[in-house]
Amino acid sequence: KVLVLALYDYQEKSPREVTMKKGDILTLLNSTNKDWWKVEVNGRQGFVPAAYVKVL
């Protein structure tokens, strides 16, 4: 399983997205889209901007 680090806070803007806080460790589920990556955080799955996270 691939983990990513949240570099910035992100507030979800649609039901398909998830909120994350800077420093959160998320599970990367899909990174085929260069702009939006699907992650799991706190038991929820959704998209975050790829530029806001870094693969650990």
Rank of each mutant, 00 (worst) to 15 (best):
Y10C: 01
K38W: 13
L7E: 04
K22I: 11
V4K: 01
W36F: 13
M20H: 01
D35P: 03
Q11D: 12
K1Y: 15
Y10G: 00
E17M: 05
L29V: 09
K38T: 09
P15I: 08
D9K: 03
W36L: 04
L7T: 07
T19A: 08
P49K: 04
G23P: 00
Y52D: 03
D9G: 07
A6C: 06
L3Q: 15
N42M: 11
W36S: 03
G23F: 06
N33F: 11
V2A: 10
V48G: 00
K54Y: 12
Y10Q: 01
A6K: 01
L26K: 00
S14W: 09
W37K: 02
W36R: 03
K13Q: 15
K21P: 01
K21G: 06
Q11G: 11
S14Y: 09
V55F: 10
E12S: 13
K22V: 10
L26A: 09
F47P: 01
T27P: 10
Y10M: 01
A50I: 04
G46A: 03
L28K: 02
V53W: 00
D24R: 02
Y10N: 01
V48M: 01
D24Q: 11
V55L: 12
L5Y: 08
V4E: 00
G43T: 06
N30M: 06
M20C: 06
D35S: 13
T19G: 11
K21Q: 13
R44V: 13
T19Q: 06
P15G: 13
K54E: 08
K22Y: 06
V39H: 00
L26D: 00
A6N: 01
K54P: 01
V53L: 12
K34A: 15
G43F: 08
S31P: 07
P15C: 06
A51S: 08
S31V: 08
T32D: 15
K22C: 05
G46D: 01
L7A: 04
V2W: 10
L26N: 01
K38I: 13
V39F: 01
Y8I: 13
L28A: 02
L26V: 08
K54T: 15
E12G: 15
M20E: 00
D35T: 10
G43M: 10
K54C: 06
N42H: 11
G46W: 02
V2K: 11
L56W: 07
Q45N: 12
L5N: 03
E40P: 00
N33S: 11
E12D: 06
L56T: 10
A50V: 06
L26R: 01
E17T: 08
P49Y: 02
N33A: 10
M20L: 14
N30R: 08
S31G: 10
V48T: 02
P15A: 14
A51V: 09
G23Q: 02
K54W: 05
R16A: 12
D9N: 08
G23S: 04
N42I: 07
R44N: 09
E40M: 08
M20F: 15
V55K: 11
T32R: 11
K38D: 04
P49T: 01
P15L: 10
V41T: 13
Q45T: 15
K21L: 11
K13M: 14
D35F: 11
E40N: 06
V2F: 09
V55A: 12
M20D: 00
R44S: 06
K38P: 02
Q11Y: 10
E40Q: 09
V41M: 10
L26W: 02
Y52Q: 05
G46T: 02
N30F: 08
S14M: 07
T27W: 13
Y10R: 04
N42Q: 13
D9L: 02
Y52V: 06
G46F: 04
K13H: 12
A50D: 01
G43C: 06
D24H: 05
R16C: 06
K22A: 11
V39D: 00
G43I: 04
I25S: 04
K34Y: 08
L29Q: 05
E17H: 08
V2T: 12
M20A: 02
T32M: 14
K21Y: 10
V53I: 08
V53K: 00
K22H: 09
V18W: 07
Y52R: 05
V39W: 00
I25W: 05
V53D: 00
P15N: 11
V53P: 00
V4Q: 01
K1R: 11
G23A: 03
I25D: 01
N30W: 07
L26T: 01
G46R: 02
K54I: 10
Q11H: 10
G23M: 04
P15M: 11
K34S: 11
T32H: 14
Y8E: 13
Y8L: 14
L56S: 06
D24G: 04
D35M: 10
V18S: 03
A6I: 01
L7G: 02
S31N: 15
L3R: 11
E12Q: 10
N30T: 08
L28P: 01
V41R: 12
M20P: 00
G46H: 02
V18P: 01
L29H: 07
W36T: 03
K38N: 08
Q45M: 13
R44W: 04
S14N: 13
A6L: 02
D9A: 09
V18A: 07
L3W: 11
Y8R: 11
K34C: 06
K34D: 12
E17R: 05
V41D: 07
K22P: 04
V2N: 14
M20N: 00
V41Y: 14
M20S: 01
A6E: 00
V4C: 06
K34N: 13
A50Y: 03
L3V: 10
Q11V: 09
Y52C: 05
L7H: 03
P49A: 02
L7R: 04
A51N: 10
Y10D: 00
D24N: 12
K22E: 11
E40A: 08
A6Q: 00
L7D: 02
F47D: 05
L5T: 13
S31F: 09
K21R: 10
K13D: 08
A50N: 03
W37S: 03
T27F: 14
S14D: 13
F47E: 05
G23E: 03
L56Y: 10
E40H: 05
N42Y: 10
L26G: 13
A50K: 10
A50W: 02
F47C: 05
E17I: 03
T32Q: 14
K38Y: 15
P15R: 03
S14K: 07
N30L: 12
K34H: 12
Q11W: 15
N33H: 13
V55H: 06
A6S: 06
A6W: 01
V2D: 14
P49H: 02
Q45L: 11
V53Q: 00
K38E: 09
Y8P: 00
D9V: 02
D24P: 00
V18E: 01
Q45P: 07
V41P: 01
S14V: 06
Q11A: 14
A50M: 07
K1M: 15
G43R: 06
V41C: 04
Y52K: 08
T27L: 15
T32W: 12
M20Y: 02
T32S: 10
S31K: 15
V53N: 01
V2M: 08
G43A: 09
V4H: 03
M20W: 01
G23V: 00
K54H: 15
T32G: 12
K13R: 10
E12C: 04
G23D: 12
S14E: 12
E40Y: 08
L7Q: 06
S14Q: 10
N42R: 12
L3S: 10
N30K: 09
Y10L: 01
G23N: 09
T27S: 12
I25A: 04
L5F: 14
W36Y: 11
N33P: 06
W37D: 01
K38Q: 15
K38H: 13
G43Q: 07
V18M: 13
L7P: 00
T32F: 13
K13G: 11
N30G: 07
P15T: 10
Q45H: 08
W37I: 06
V2L: 09
E12L: 13
L3I: 07
E40G: 07
N33T: 06
A50H: 04
K13A: 14
S14L: 08
L56M: 07
